[in-house]
Every structure is written in C-alpha cells, then in structure tokens.
Design a protein around this nucleic acid. Structure first.
Length: 500
RNA sequence: GCCCCCAUCGUCUAGGGGACCAGGACGUGGCCCUUUCAAGGCCAAGACCGGGGUUCGAAUCCCCGUGGGGGCACCA
C-alpha cells in the first residue's frame, strides 16, 4: 500500500453509539484514518443508530470526543457534513427500505409474516434436536403476489434475504485470504424489521456502496456474516470493497474478551479500555495511538516508536496480524513515558497544567511551571504522576514525616544540627543556584562527616516533604531561597519539638 | 450443539522452505551511571501447541488433533 501510490481510499468508521468508546473502536478508527490519509482519500464517520432502543446520545458525544482526542478528525460525517449526508443511519430509513423492496422485486428477498412466537417455537425445537437455529423458510415459499397483497393490506411483516440453499459463498478478507462458507449454513437473515428499520446487514452495505467506501475495516465479529454481506452486494450487482476484518482484543491475561468485571478491576490499577478514561488518567493521545497501532500491526522487526505522521507514511494493511491480541497496559506505560520525554517542554507544560489545576493547585505560575516541567519530565509515566513528583513546587508549605527527617544512622538531634548548618550556609549564599549550592553542601557533608547521601536525604525531605523527588539542587533553585529556608526551619522545629 | 477465525518467549511481535542452536519490544533479574527516584547504557533468563505428511531440508507448506477466540437476535 505504501510501496506504490494507491488510489485515494474512502474508509469509514461506523460505530453504534450504544456504549462507551474503547480501545477496539479506537484502533479500527485509527486504521481507517491512516489508510485514508495515506492515500489522500477520505475518512468517513457514520453513526449506526438504527436500533433506536439502544441508542444513547451520551455515547455519541463521548465517541466524537474520543476520536478528536486521538487526532482522528473525520472528513465526512456528523457535525462536518459531506456529499453523502446524512451520516446518521437513523435519518436514512427510507433509503434502506427502498433498497430492500428492490431486492424483493429482484427475487433476492421476500416478505415474512411469521410471528415472534412462532420463530421462538422453531428455535426451541431446533435447539432440542441439536440443530443449528435457523428460519424454517415458511414464508420463502409464499406466492410473491399473495405476499405483496398481504403487505398492502397492512399485515405486520419483516423482509428476509433469500440465501441460496446450495453451493458455497467465498469472500476475500485482506488478512486471511478466502473465507468460504457453505450456503446451507447461512440463514435467511432479516434485513428489515417489522417496524420498518433496516438491520445492519442491509443498512451498512447500502451505505458503503452509496458512500463509495473502498475499504471496509471492521472487527472480526463480522466474519460469520461476511458471506451474507457479500451476497447482498452481489444481489445488487455492486462492486465489493476491500474487506479487512481486524483481530479482537483479549483481556491482559490473554484469556477471553474484556468483561464488565475486568474493566472494573483494571480501573483499580489505574488503567481503562475507555478512551476518555485514558485521557483523564494522564495518557497522551500520541501514546495511545502508537500503542494501539501496534496491536495487530507491525512495521518491521525493530521499529516501534511512531508519531501520527510516521504512521500515516508507514502503515500498511498488508502487515496486519489476524490473531487475537492481549492488551498489554505496561506497554502503554512505556509508550506514554517515551512520548512524554519526546515532547518539547512548553508543550508538556501545557498538558500538565490542567492536571495541576484539577488537583487544586491554582494560580500556577507559567514561568515556574516551565522550570518544573523538565525536572519531572523523565520521571513520570502519566501526566497525573506529575502531581506526586512535582506537587511540592506549588505548595505553600510541606509536611514531612519526622522519621524521614532523621538521616540514616543519625539521631534527630544530629539531623537538626545538620539542618541548622545548612540553613546558615544557605542564608550566606548570595543566590540559590544549583552549581554554587551543590558545591557548598558537598563541603558541608564533609565538615559534618556525613555522606552526601545522608545530608542530601535530610535536606530533600525538609525541602520537598518527600523522600523521592527530582534532583535536590535544581529543585531548590526552582522553589526559591526564601521558601527553602523557611521549610528547613520548619523541619528543624519539628525535630527539636520531638527531642523536647 | 453448529459455523467461522486464530496458534512463535509471560505479553505484543519479526520470520512465509536453507540467511534461525529463531530477531526486536514490554515486563522481570543483574550491572553501570547516580544525592533519592527516574531517564539512559550494558548484560541475562525466556518461545516455534502436539502428531503425521510433503521435501535433501519445515517455525515457515498440507492434513488431523488439541487449545484459544468469535458468531449463531425483528443488536451492531
């Protein structure tokens, strides 16, 4: 695909807004987007909301938000319009109905008047006899003129696709090659419900054709009905798109698909399969894109770090892997760290700001944030980690634990004495810069017969309130001399009050 | 039960008849660097599901098992 200039592709992401947008959808949309961008074609978003009972406006909002967060802006679809509008299937009911009637006229479909109850009876009977559950074909044998009269008379009916009963059907999947199914294993699927709404099988094929879709990239859960879709397209005499059935995602253990329970467990570990959760958890869209792109696709035997432009250039449907993939969140952490470190500091600072603000650190000074950013940058894996790693920079006071203030193999009195000397040195310093302060404090350690680790450890706790922090002297420089001195005095008080 | 898909380190993967005592990445362990924590560098352990075939030669092709996954709605 990338080897020779392909003709512009028209791809579509066609989700059903009945739940939250997750990794699987994100990856499908990403591949759609990449193929469109790579070939100079269009990425279309189509909302499959023909099931009015399951439709949820919240889901749709979250869908748009998720795709945009990932950087997958659609060229045609809701909110942006396009030459094939409307892009909500709920607004295209008549189009599907017309096409269904066309199929009936051509003899590829028929009206069915069987009741739900009768269908249920047949199903149970078949189950009892261990037969595959299928429509028994009663209405298929009806005289078409009579069926038409009953429809005209207002009798409740559905429209079924007339599947050939002999032979087999072969479709070609881009990653698996030919997929052949015996026609007798296929059912006379309902394509229009009794309320007049088309089902996916019809609606999607009609829209894909009308919208001139060249590549249907979708989940492999569609593989079993793939031959049906091929049949519908052939019945109309349309050209088939390229079919790409993506592998599914397994839970991290590799044992089965993600369940509700798994999702809840995941959140406890600070992970989620939902895109907006990942955003709120402090993951970068760049990292999520890079990570999911590699779940089922590879470039070569060593390159793994990709930006969106690089993916657009290098992505290829020919290098997709058909086997199911377990989700590996520790690899997401890895990619997030990588992308965080790659970011220019001002960019990272801008992304960090909302996390600090949400945590209650208001009036964050831009200059200070810009200084803090490179200090936390190599030390965080998510944006949210910056709160723990660098919160003390924006805190008025810090509250160290007494035990942490006492150095290794030292008494509280020793620590207090060391801090007193540190305070003297600090106040004597004309300004607080890393080079000068580090030199002075190294000398102090020697004077007190302490290791650098001992002294710096005490200072770190006094100044940052924590045992783990960015490098001490750089940190002190950002915090400022007055605040550093005040915090050291507080630590001395703490130690001496304990002694008393 | 029936149908379909899949099968290389714990995980994501490279490999597509000889270049493979199987390469990379995450994770894990160790070392170096180092004021803590990271980052970074180096090293280590770790896999071709089983059985048949085809072939001079199989991780690679074929068949059968087995295992895993998906689907069997007037959902998508």
């Amino acid at each position: 695909m990338s080897t020779h200039a392909a003709k512009p592709a028209r791809t579509r992401f066609a989700p059903s807004p009945t739940g939250r947008t997750h990794l699987g959808g994100g990856r499908t949309a990403l591949y759609d987007f990449l193929v469109a961008r790579q070939t100079g074609g269009q990425f279309i978003l189509r909302i499959e909301d023909t099931d009015r009972k399951r439709y949820s406006p919240d889901s749709e909002r979250e869908l748009f938000e998720s795709l945009r967060w990932l950087g997958l802006q659609w060229d045609e679809g809701p909110e942006v319009g396009g030459p094939h509008a409307p892009y909500h299937q709920s607004q295209r009911k008549d189009i599907y109905l017309e096409h269904a009637h066309l199929l009936v006229e051509m003899g590829h479909a028929y009206f069915c008047f069987c009741s739900l109850e009768r269908l249920e009876r047949i199903r149970q009977e078949q189950q009892r006899r261990k037969e595959p559950p299928r429509y028994d074909g009663t209405c298929r044998r009806l005289d078409p003129d009579e069926a038409a009269r009953r429809v005209a008379a207002g009798e409740r009916h559905v429209i079924r696709f007339k599947m050939p009963q002999e032979g087999s059907t072969t479709g070609v999947d881009r990653l698996r090659g030919e997929i052949t199914v015996e026609n007798r294993n296929l059912d006379d699927y309902i394509i229009v419900k009794s309320d007049g709404w088309a089902l996916y099988h019809l609606a999607a094929m009609v829209d894909d054709h009308l919208m001139e879709i060249t590549h249907v990239i979708r989940g492999s859960e569609w593989l079993p009905t793939f031959p049906l879709h091929v049949h519908i397209i052939r019945a109309f005499g349309w050209e088939e798109p390229d079919w790409v059935h993506l592998s599914i995602f397994l839970k991290p253990s590799g044992k089965g698909k993600m369940s509700k329970r798994d999702t809840a467990d995941l959140m406890k570990d600070g992970f989620s399969i939902y895109l907006t959760d990942l955003r709120d958890l402090g993951y970068l869209p760049e990292a999520v894109v890079n990570w999911t792109a590699l779940m089922g696709w590879s470039y070569d035997d060593r390159t793994e770090f990709f930006s969106m432009p690089e993916l657009i250039e290098k992505f290829s449907l020919d290098r997709l892997n058909p086997s199911p993939a377990a989700i590996n969140f520790s690899k997401l952490d890895h990619f997030n760290g990588l992308h965080i470190r790659k970011l220019p500091a001002p960019d990272l600072a801008a992304r960090l700001r909302p996390f600090f603000e949400k945590a209650g650190y208001h009036k964050i000074d831009e200059d200070k944030l810009l200084k803090v950013t490179p200090l936390v940058q190599p030390r965080i894996v998510t944006l949210e980690d910056a709160l723990v790693m660098g919160g003390f920079f924006f805190e008025e006071e810090v509250y160290p634990n007494l035990v942490d203030l006492v150095g290794d193999n030292m008494t509280p009195a020793d620590s207090a004495a060391a801090l007193r000397r540190a305070e003297q040195i600090l106040t004597g310093l004309p300004e607080l810069r890393r080079e000068s302060s580090e030199e002075a404090f190294r000398a102090l350690a020697e004077e007190l017969d302490l290791s650098a680790g001992q002294l710096f450890g005490i200072l770190r706790v006094a100044v940052t309130g924590k045992t783990v922090s960015p490098p001490l002297f750089e940190s002190m420089g950002v915090i400022g001399k007055d605040t550093v001195v005040r915090r050291i005095r507080n630590a001395i008080d703490l130690l001496e009050n304990y002694a008393a």
